[in-house]
Amino acid sequence: MNNKRPLALPVGAFDWARRQATLGLLLAASVLILAQSALANTPTIRLFPTSVVEDLRQTGNVARDMETGLQEVIGRLDQQQQLYEESKCDGAENDSGCQRLARQIGATYLEMLTIMEERLPDMEHTVNNTRMSLEKGLRNELGKKMTPWQLQETLIGKTTTSTTSPSAPTLRGRSGMRLSERFKQYYQLVATSGSQSDQSLAVLASDIYLDMDETSLLIERTRQEIARATLMEQLNQSFGIITPEMMEVVGGVKSILFGDEETRALVAGPPPGSIEQAYRSPLEQ
């Protein structure tokens, strides 16, 4: 019966039905096109699986625990060193008071090394986990699945006419902030990465990965050095000497853990204004 209905309709009604059908088709086509374009705009590279987000959160926690543990010891070291300088002990190493002060500083230094020795394996473990997850993602998603041109298109975004994305990562330079703060910032950026475009994610993943790679190497070297430094300091304890190396190590640990304002890198800002182009050449790729 339904098949016969159009035949029974008057000419005007037939036209109306045809218009309706055409409109329906157009609507369906529009929905399809919209759905496809929405899919095309969805980030397609998987650089931050849940495991990476979790690893980053854990690394941040471990770093915070280490900072908390070291903060008090380093504060004490600073006070002792200040007292040593104020007592004009430089050049008066044979003075018994100065020797006592030097031994106290040495003991605190040993305490710092012990805390680091205890905490570093955890830190090393979580940093390595994050590094390896990111490494796999970068290798597969950007290294093996993309040609150089595709990588470039990912970084710039599909359309060069859009304005600079406000969500573009502003992380540049990895020194100058607390270690735990750094990981917290990474975690927050990654945890909200759903709202970010592919281009931001590629830069963010690269930045974090290189940082993790560097941190991982530093931790490895630090662990090797701790054993040596501990032995040296145990020997020094008997003589009550403050070595310049000791002060250097303390300074280094402070700058890694709590940041060093002097070496703070400038944060790259977006270029001013929009990059909207009035003209697009047929030769443009």
């Binding site: 796999k136 970068l138 290294g143 990588l151 970084l155 690269s206 290189l210």
Partner: peptide, 15 residues
């Protein structure tokens, strides 16, 4: 950006 991303990607590829 290409400089940074290539540095990371190539390190990952080499690893």
């Amino acid at each position: 950006e290409v400089e940074l991303v290539l540095e990371a990607t190539c390190t990952a590829c080499a690893a």
